[in-house]
Design a protein around this nucleic acid. Sequence first.
DNA 1: GTCTATACAACGATAGAC
DNA 2: GTCTATCGTTGTATAGAC
Lengths: 201, 201
Amino acid sequence: MARPVNPQRSAARREAIVLAAAELFGVNGFEQTTTAQIAKAAGISPGGVFYYFEDKRAVFRAIFQRDLPMSKALVAAALDRDDPFDAVLHVVDQLAEDVMNPLAAGLLVELVRQAGRDPELTRVVHENTTIITDGLAVLLRRCQAADLIDSSLEPGEAAQWIQSIIDGAYLNADPDRDPRPMLRRIVRGFLLSGNDGDTHV
Amino acid sequence: MARPVNPQRSAARREAIVLAAAELFGVNGFEQTTTAQIAKAAGISPGGVFYYFEDKRAVFRAIFQRDLPMSKALVAAALDRDDPFDAVLHVVDQLAEDVMNPLAAGLLVELVRQAGRDPELTRVVHENTTIITDGLAVLLRRCQAADLIDSSLEPGEAAQWIQSIIDGAYLNADPDRDPRPMLRRIVRGFLLSGNDGDTHV
DNA sequence: GTCTATACAACGATAGAC
DNA sequence: GTCTATCGTTGTATAGAC
């Protein structure tokens, strides 16, 4: 990639494109969003997107590359907490933070769809998921060591399921209802309940 | 709609189109699938789809209209069971039956995406969801009456969350791993765990 | 009634202007 | 280095053939 003469302005334009694209992709979907729409929303001319990005899919990927640092910070902060069980629920809360934002829900669906098709994107998604899964798994192991949750759960697997539960919440999002209390409850029930079932009430 | 001269053949063709389309939509997505591809897979000529369906979206809707009777049967059978708690877990099992089928997972994602865009389709989805939700809610009320699950759960809401959890499983499907044992476990934990202990943040 | 050849529109991407 | 006018391709849907 050749370095632009005016890096600041260039970076700002890129950012504008990514933000405009995120909104359009989230609302209308990837295929239904045209590069011309993105360009217009970003205040540049129809073909201008292709100066800043290799192609349309690269714009889409850029959206999700943006929140990779956020995932890392989220996990790092959680690992610093004293109570690992609290930390897990805190991560759940944070991951579900955007459920009520319809844009985020739309983007998640779009992400799942496109991830199966674009290997580059798959890599980005996988990296992000791994950060969260690994972080959660560490926390779950700590919980088990402190005898706070069911010891028969395989931490890595349980971590994936927690993410899966949150994904479900994104899919069935209702903008008017905060899903986090119920999500905490479900995750708590999941982690506490033994595998044999009816011991807990 | 004019009735075809040869209803049987006509119905068979329609069915062939729907089946071919389901596969293509599930694998490649709605927009990435062309009507020509569908026609070819169904063994008719490029424009032929439009004789049997009003437009491309009508083909997509037809896929999901097909399994409306199945939902009804599923719920009816569950309501006939003696133990309502077993019945709930049985419904969960049935709903998750296709998680390991990649086609079904692809179609679910596609469905969520398109449902927000096509009002007709929204209606179909809503009808299907309502059947399940209402059925589950009845079962949950029975469970509460028999003191089998936490009485503080609002049945309708809990039913929606159960479906949400299953949707999450579809999203994160792994073709090599049967998700049902873990799903049962999560749902059981959810229904049994009390609402207290919510002191966590 | 059934199906096909084709019109028309729209999109992503580029060649080259500034 | 930055951006715009434009092109080739492709896809839906239809007008009309059989």
